Simulated assay, not measured.
Amino acid sequence: MGTTRENGSLYTHIHGNVATIEFGHPASNSFVADLLDRLTKEFLKLSDNDTITTILLKSEGEKAFCAGASFDELMAVSTIQEGKVFFSGFANVINAMRTCKKVIIGRVQGKTVGGGVGLAAACDYVFASENASIRLSELAIGIAPLVIAPAVERKIGIAGLSELSLAPTEWKNAYWAKEKGLFSKVFDNLKELDQELELFAEKLSSYNPEALEDWKKVLWKDTDHWDALLTERAAISGKLALSAFTRNAMSKFKK
């Protein structure tokens, strides 16, 4: 049973050297600003927790992994500053995941849209179900996936990013995402996925914590400028969200 809380839910469970973060929201596990803020703080806190070496990121239920940012909150944006703050939510989470000292494993059990694709891309290793289709729907509502683009491009390249983003109404299946490098492994059922994921997390968490931390820095090389870059992108996105084109597209989408 998923959460019914309007602000969503976020729980962390630590078992051995592995911390599992589970997020949920009644609207297909989408993110309101408050939930993004809590997730950012959780990654920053766990980064400095010496008792763990690995983080597992998952969402509630067996359906959607993440529907991206809250559509209702996006509709409510009324100033450029509010827009920048709204889009900074995912910027902050991605930067917290990037600088986190622990290796992050993602569990993507179902459909993933927009910011959810950015979240998967910011994980270091991803287990997915074959139901985990992905879509970057931003252009269809008048904005663009500016904030998450660096994370997604780092995994699937500019060609994959172009193909995904310029067809905003088209779903790409989990095998496409695996072939491009967004997903590490794809399973045809959740039982098998969870069994393999547990074994993998256990094994990974037994490695030298210093080696894992040093290696993660290498995997994320040349991304030190992302703090400024993603904030800059959030400001551009906020401006786009206020345009007459976007307002019109969003109200049609809402209907």
Rank of each mutant, 00 (worst) to 15 (best):
G2F: 03
T3E: 04
L10R: 06
H13I: 15
I14C: 10
G16P: 13
N17H: 15
A19Q: 12
E22T: 15
E22K: 10
H25P: 06
K41D: 14
S47F: 10
D50G: 12
T51H: 11
I52F: 11
T53Q: 13
K58T: 14
E60N: 03
G61C: 08
E62H: 04
A67P: 03
A67W: 02
G68C: 04
A69W: 03
V77F: 05
Q81P: 02
S88G: 06
M97Y: 15
R98C: 02
R98K: 07
T99R: 07
K101P: 00
K102R: 15
G115V: 14
G118K: 13
G118R: 12
A121E: 02
C123Q: 15
C123R: 09
D124M: 07
V126L: 04
V147E: 01
V152I: 14
V152A: 06
R154A: 13
S162R: 08
S162G: 13
E163T: 13
E163K: 08
L164H: 01
L166S: 11
T169R: 08
A177C: 00
S184D: 08
K185Y: 03
V186L: 10
L190S: 06
Y207V: 08
P209G: 03
P209W: 08
D222S: 15
L230I: 00
G238Y: 00
K239V: 14
K255C: 10
